[in-house]
Write a protein that binds this DNA or RNA. Structure first.
Length: 883
RNA sequence: GGGCCCGUGGUCUAGUCGGUUAUGACAUCGCCCUUACACGGCGGGGAUCACGCGUUCGAAUCGCGUCGGGCCCA
């Protein structure tokens, strides 16, 4: 018996006072208009953290970017991740803080200011120069804020901080004072990495390495035992030579150990020492130790208690001890000294040598190691490594980078810098006795260059002081960001640790390292519960995106062309967090297409999506609700693991495949049909699905999610809750109906038939009680559901062994069983299968297989009638074509 | 030189505590303007899962090695 076709009511006659008619909704999604409108109208106070709330907190230690004026695509990727998390956690009921900070201090701004005003920093008063830097920084921050808003980030602007302002840098200064008082900060003469161009000390983290080719010079040192031949790549440091080293078991040079040799050109004696680190196969096997050619020299210097001979000054020029070379630059001296030694026959050989040299990461000048009186922070590697194990690293393996780095530092963190635009070190030196006077906490903030201490010198009572002109390393500012956002030294009770630190893997050795160090030193706890590490953004050529490689794309350019929601989809699906992500226009384009698809779905749904409570969902509705519930569960799980690609793919898959391509096609006839419980059930199901969909999309595509949700229900999606899975149980009927409808659609498509062309009849053979309303509606054909199997002859043509079932039971017999069962006649296997078991001989024994062990592929034997058969899992469909 | 990550259709990618026919996007080909969407729908072609050896009944997945790439460091 065929079910009757539902009556079709013309669209124009459908009146629904609650819903928006489709015709009023534009066919094309206008992302520009929608996004710009929401940027202008959103009330950002809904993103504010509530300091007074007792609810569960979720504080994000946003890494404060350097205000260059351009919010680049790498920032944008990281901020997308942060925003996904922040919006998700808010919807889960957390009291979320997504603060925005600005890490202002630093050399690039000083350089830029010098460029803009055509001055050098020494030409204007210190205070004036600082003011110009602040002015430029403020302009740059303003520019970057615009981009961030346009990208839809839900920053908490009530918790913005700017490290160059007294509010913040007083905390930096207080952290300095506290750590000094705890004995964690000290000042002493110590080798430091020095950039001669910038004229400042720099930390290991600021040293970059590059391979260069240089000359290895072979020269002779005079000795009573006969000239000693040594090889060096740094002859310009000859005047700084304090010893010569050989390997203790070096047979050729062993006799020199303990004697003295004469340094050529400068004619003074240095000892020959034995040290196992010397590579006897490199050069001549003899190495000259200078203060300081490299880090190894520093180690030897300490170990063997050698004297200090400083041949290079702060400006990178040769000092007095270099004699007639004094005043030359390093390259000038190198050239002159080689020339001199050549003419004297001291250099007897030169060969080229590939080596890696340390460079200043800002200006790429080769760094020198100088002994300078500087401020240092003590590093306790084991404490940092221990603390990092308390932190959840995502992805896990990134923690190894921190551990590796932590073990490689040869000396403490040098925190003084010889610059202007930075946090002043709150210290004076007594003019009379020279003792340093470190400010007390309640004097702060201050600049010792502008203020005098309120007390006399505790040592000698003098009232005359010189200010400390050095300033603090910028990492001293930024490494307390985690403490700052959790309310340290604020009016609020502190809430550390923060829950999340999102950052790139390129700054693990700096930011993550220093922040852990400082949190432990200052408050004794880890700075964060979790750290989420994002990859670098690669250009479409596969290389790290940078202006110099000319593969650079600005986020603004993408937003203008495809919108923020499309851009954010690239961030979500471009790669899983931690891996590098290539920027690809086609990902953005496909994101834009999805927006259009969503818009079309909404445009269709608008007149039909109506909440109602009195209509029980039918089988197809329940199938959709089950798929929705399952998807919500999966997405929630993915979000909890920060797997945004997984989460977004699941949402998009549901929206596109399940809801649009299948469910909506199935229920159209009900929606266009006469009012009644069946229609209302479909309307209500669509409403539920779209409502949930907009919530799930809200963290990813906040603009279109808001637009649709506001139109649908008049409420903001961004104050709504994350959907909960309904937990509706799985029932096979709806899924089978969907499969049959899809099969019929394919059938028509294969034959070039219009998809709405009616068939004479469809018979569905199944043991399930299938409802026919949506099947007949979506196929435009009468449908009958029958029990059992159709009277059609079939023949087994292939036996497909099921490895999953056979393997675990028969173990190493499996191979033989598979070979056997696929070699016998499939018809025979099929006959046996009807008895419920299959017996086959394997070698000597007879093995019994259950029905789960095989699947039989069959072929229909045509009965010569106008009947087509489609066999699906659990159902057989017969189509009467009517011819 | 060391550490970490990676190598899957033309391109990019999912899957990686072993188990039917390896996911998706973009590209490509064919058919279809079906009362939301042609920025759409249906279908097709296209991958010896870098290579070799091993463990196993069974390997993209586990182990070892080789080659190639990236990142961090020396």
């Amino acid at each position: 018996m065929f079910a009757t076709l539902p009556t079709i009511i013309p669209f124009a006659e459908i009146k629904n006072s609650e819903a928006i008619p489709m015709s009023e909704i534009s066919k094309e999604y206008d992302f520009k208009q929608v996004e710009e409108r929401w940027v202008d109208t959103w009330d950002e106070s809904i993103y504010y953290f509530d300091w007074n709330s007792d609810g569960p907190q979720y504080i994000i230690d946003t890494p404060p970017p350097y205000p260059t004026g351009n919010f680049h695509i790498g920032n944008a990727l990281n901020w997308c991740y942060i925003d996904f998390v922040a919006r998700y956690k808010r919807m889960r009921g957390y009291n979320v803080m997504f603060p925005q900070g600005w890490d202002c201090h630093g050399l690039p701004t000083e350089v830029k200011v010098e460029e803009i005003h055509k001055i050098t920093k020494n030409e204007v008063p210190r205070e004036e120069f600082r003011r110009l830097c602040e002015e430029l920084t403020a302009q740059n921050i303003a520019k970057m804020r615009v981009t961030m808003r346009r990208l839809g980030f839900s920053n908490d602007w009530s918790n913005e901080y700017v490290t160059m302002l007294p509010d913040y840098y007083s905390k930096t200064q207080r952290s300095f004072v506290r750590m000094f008082e705890k004995g964690m900060i000290y000042r002493e003469d110590h080798p430091v990495n020095w950039c001669p161009r910038c004229g400042t000390a720099i930390a290991f983290a600021e040293v970059e390495y590059d391979s260069r080719t240089t000359a290895l010079n072979y020269l002779r040192f005079g000795s009573n035992l006969g000239d000693l031949e040594i090889a060096t790549s740094r002859p310009e440091l000859l005047a700084a030579c304090v010893a010569v080293a050989v390997h203790p078991e070096d047979e050729k040079h062993g006799k020199y150990i303990g004697t003295e040799v004469q340094v050529p050109v400068f004619d003074y004696n240095v000892p020959v020492i034995a040290d196992e680190v010397v590579d006897p196969t490199f050069g001549t096997g003899v190495v000259m130790i200078c203060t300081f050619g490299d880090k190894q020299d520093v180690r030897w210097w300490v170990e063997h208690d050698l004297p200090l001979r400083q041949a290079i000054d702060r400006a990178g020029r040769m000092t007095e001890i270099a004699g007639k070379f004094a005043g030359m630059t390093i390259p000038e001296c190198k050239e002159a000294i080689i020339e001199e030694m050549r003419s004297l026959g001291i250099i007897y050989k030169q060969e080229s040598l590939d080596q890696n040299v340390g460079l200043c990461w800002r200006c790429k000048t080769a760094i020198e190691i100088l002994s300078e009186r500087q401020w240092f922070v003590k590093i306790n590697p084991s404490e940092i490594i221990e603390t990092s194990t308390e932190i959840e690293w995502v992805p896990e393996h990134m923690e190894i980078r921190l551990k590796n780095w932590t073990g490689t530092m040869d000396w403490d963190w040098c925190i003084s810098r010889q610059r202007i635009f930075a946090t002043p070190i709150p210290v004076w030196y007594c003019k009379k006795c020279g003792e340093p006077l470190v400010a007390k906490e309640d004097w702060l903030p201050l600049d010792p260059n502008l203020a005098q201490p309120p007390i006399s010198c505790p040592g000698c009572g003098s009232d005359e002081f010189d200010p400390e002109t050095d300033v603090l390393d910028t990492w001293m500012d930024s490494s307390i960001s985690a403490l700052n956002v959790t309310g340290w030294l604020s009016d609020h009770p502190p809430r550390y640790p923060a829950q999340l630190r999102p950052q790139g893997h390129d700054i693990i050795r700096t930011w993550a390292f220093y922040t852990i160090l400082r949190a432990k030193a200052l408050v004794g706890v880890r700075p964060w519960d979790s750290i989420l590490v994002n990859g670098m953004v690669l250009g479409e050529d596969g290389h790290k995106m940078s202006k110099s490689l000319n593969n650079f794309i600005a986020p603004e350019e993408v937003v203008v062309k495809y919108g923020a929601d499309a851009f954010r989809q690239w961030a979500a699906v471009g790669g899983s967090p931690g891996s590098d992500v290539m920027f690809r226009w086609k990902d953005v384009i496909s994101g834009g297409r999805f927006l259009q698809k969503l818009w079309s779905m909404y445009r269709f749904s608008a007149p039909h999506a109506v909440k109602s409570s009195d209509a029980a969902p039918n089988q197809v509705d329940r199938w959709l609700l089950f798929e929705l519930s399952t998807m919500i569960e999966a997405v929630t799980d993915s979000m909890d693991r920060f797997q945004f690609d997984e989460a977004f793919r699941a949402i998009r898959g549901f929206a596109w495949d399940v809801l649009a391509d299948n469910y909506i096609e199935l229920v159209k006839s009900r929606l266009y049909g006469a009012d009644g419980p069946e229609k209302r059930a479909a309307q209500s199901t669509i409403y539920t699905a779209i409502e949930a969909l907009t919530s799930l999309l809200a963290p990813f595509t906040p603009f279109i999610a808001e637009e649709i949700r506001q139109n649908l229900s008049g409420e903001s999606v961004h104050t709504s809750s994350w959907p909960m899975p309904s937990g509706i149980p799985a029932q096979p009927e709806g899924s089978v109906i969907k499969d049959v409808a899809a099969a019929v659609r394919r059938y028509k498509s294969d034959r070039g038939m219009a998809l709405n062309s009616p068939l004479a009849g469809i018979e569905v053979y199944s043991d399930l009680d299938l409802e026919t309303i949506d099947l007949s509606g979506s196929t435009s054909s009468p449908v009958a559901v029958k029990r059992g199997s159709p009277k059609i002859e079939t023949r087994a043509v292939e036996v497909k062994p099921q490895m999953k079932a056979i393997g675990p039971v028969f173990k190493n017999l499996s191979g033989e069983i598979i070979r056997k069962i696929t070699s016998i006649d499939p018809e025979e296997v099929a006959r046996q299968l009807e008895t419920g078991k299959i017996e086959i001989e394997v070698g000597e024994e007879v093995v019994e297989l259950g029905p789960e062990a095989v699947e039989i592929a069959t072929e229909t034997l045509s009965a010569g009638k106008a009947v087509e058969m489609i066999i699906l899992a659990g159902v057989t469909v017969l189509i009467r074509t009517g011819s």
